[in-house]
Simulated scan of single mutants.
Amino acid sequence: MTGPVGVVLVSHSAAMAAGLRELLRELGSDAVPVVLAAGTEDGRLGTSYDLIVRAVAAADTGSGVVVLPDLGSSVLTAVTALADHPRPGAVLVDAPFVEGAVAAVVTASTGAALAEVVAAAEEARGYRKF
């Protein structure tokens, strides 16, 4: 049996990613696994290849995983980690970090398939605030 599509937040800041996960848990009613790969393993700002690899494995319930990086080197680190440790259904998504994560989690919480969750995250790029 598989669960909902998982989401991995790849961020330079553990605190920022934790705050976003708090919001996402409210929106996704805790049904969607949201796993952090944020900061370095020793608590500094930065990104960690190993944290990304572990987070993707932890978020995978069998329905796929959306990997959302915040910016710059988190993208490069995620690309490298996913290339070195390919996992069927793990997709690196080019979407705004906050809006893309919200769209992905809300869509995943409905039981949507991976392609729909990816599309929702990517479409968040066009959301207007006013």
Rank of each mutant, 00 (worst) to 15 (best):
V32D: 06
L76D: 14
A104D: 06
H85G: 10
R128K: 12
L82D: 02
V65T: 09
G3F: 10
L23V: 14
D94V: 15
G126N: 11
L76A: 15
V98F: 11
G89Y: 10
L24P: 07
V34Q: 01
L76H: 15
E122G: 04
G43K: 07
T2L: 07
A108C: 06
T107F: 02
L76F: 15
S109E: 04
L27C: 01
G19R: 14
V118N: 02
V5L: 09
G39C: 10
Y49L: 13
A37D: 02
A120W: 05
A112P: 03
A14N: 09
A78N: 13
P86Q: 08
P33A: 12
L27D: 07
V102A: 13
V56N: 09
L20I: 13
A17I: 06
A95W: 03
V65M: 09
Y127H: 09
V118P: 02
V75A: 13
A103S: 13
V118A: 02
E26N: 05
R128Y: 03
L92N: 00
Y127D: 01
H85V: 14
G72E: 11
G100A: 10
H12M: 11
P96V: 09
L20N: 05
E116S: 13
F130P: 00
A81T: 01
T107W: 00
A31M: 13
S11A: 15
T40D: 05
L71V: 14
E122S: 04
V91Q: 08
V53I: 10
T110V: 05
L76S: 14
A78D: 12
P4W: 08
S48P: 06
T2R: 12
L27R: 11
R21H: 04
E116N: 03
T110I: 04
K129V: 01
L23A: 13
A37K: 10
T110R: 14
D42W: 01
I52R: 02
E26A: 14
L36H: 12
S73Y: 05
T110W: 13
A104K: 01
V91W: 01
L92I: 05
V105E: 02
